[in-house]
């Protein structure tokens, strides 16, 4: 038996809390914008745009030279960060047009095909924005825990979960059907849980570093964050609360929806935080 000791796994320390916050706010904003377009909720679109804009200062803080960030437009052919920065600007323009048209729609009660083309384009770019956040880390095989085809899907589903979480606070203003919103919330949480399970299984069956990441998630130092924080408090609890609100005798108490929203947001944040913490390089061999 050959014992190999000493050459230990190295954790990534390039991305930290600012990157986590940037992708968290981007996920909330883009997810909320997409759902608001689906539900025709103009205020939701505006708040979604504000959340997306909140990503920018965190990205700037993360960069060593914030004043040079304009240079990031230069290489969209190969760099996902470059694509993301361009997408962000396109989204801001489309979102503003969409919001302005939305208010016109409220007053004039007039829907032209052009309105929908802008909305559809804005939704496509919003999905792209969520994807760019994940592809920036998932594109390269250097960190096996990130190099997963499931990661972009997880970012999209967590983005929609976060968007739903904010809608739980706003839906009384939107004249939305709470039953429909609750169903959406339950579906995205269920998708999250399935994708998380698939992701963990994929890590467990992959390279040495990926297996170590999977071990850390369920048996290592991050298990409280993953099992208690993300799965139980961030997913199962909100699902129970949403179901409780939907099938409660009284349709009045929105407190259950709001609590579910807070817990979902916490789960979404922890998901990104944990993902940064399980970033381990393969041992050179």
């Amino acid at each position: 038996m050959i014992v190999r000791r000493g050459m230990t796994f190295e954790y990534q320390d390039a991305f930290g809390i600012w990157f986590v916050l940037a992708t968290f706010f981007l996920g909330i904003g883009a997810g909320l914008f997409i759902l608001s377009v689906v539900y025709g909720f103009v205020l939701g679109k505006l708040i979604g745009l504000i959340f997306v804009l909140l990503e920018m200062p965190f990205l700037a803080i993360e960069a060593g030279h914030p004043l040079r960030v304009w240079r990031a437009f230069a290489y969209p052919k190969t760099s996902w960060l470059s694509r993301g920065v361009i997408g962000l600007n396109v989204f801001i323009i489309l979102a503003i047009i969409s919001i302005l048209q939305g208010y016109k729609f409220l007053f004039l009660k007039d829907v032209s095909p052009y309105d929908w083309s802008v909305n559809v384009a804005a939704v496509i770019v919003a999905v792209f924005l969520i994807l760019y956040g994940s592809m920036t880390v998932a594109r390269y095989p250097s960190i096996p825990a990130w190099h997963s085809i499931l990661l972009p899907s997880l970012f999209v589903s967590y983005g929609l979960t976060s968007g739903t979480a904010i809608l739980f606070f706003l839906y009384p203003l939107a004249n939305m059907n709470s039953m429909q919103l609750g169903q959406t919330g339950l579906i995205v949480i269920l998708i999250n849980l399935i994708l998380l399970l698939m992701y963990w299984i994929e890590l467990s069956l992959s390279t040495t570093a990926a297996k170590e990441s999977a071990r850390i998630l369920t048996r290592g130092k991050l298990w409280p964050y993953f099992i208690i924080g993300i799965v139980m408090t961030g997913s199962l609890m909100p699902a129970i609360l949403i179901a409780g609100q939907m099938y409660s005798v009284s349709q009045q108490p929105t407190i259950l929806f709001m609590t579910a929203g807070v817990l979902s947001l916490m789960g979404s944040f922890l998901f990104r935080y944990v993902l940064m913490k399980v970033g381990i390089y393969e041992i050179p061999h």
Binding site: Q12, F15, G64, R71, A72, Y140, S142, Y281, P284
Partner: peptide
């Protein structure tokens, strides 16, 4: 002079041999 310190190159390198001078 062109580097913005975004660190994407650091995570893209499989050998973890890039460093940010803070």
């Amino acid at each position: 002079s062109k580097c913005i310190g975004c660190r994407t190159c650091m995570t893209a390198c499989p050998y973890n041999v890039r460093y940010l001078m803070k």
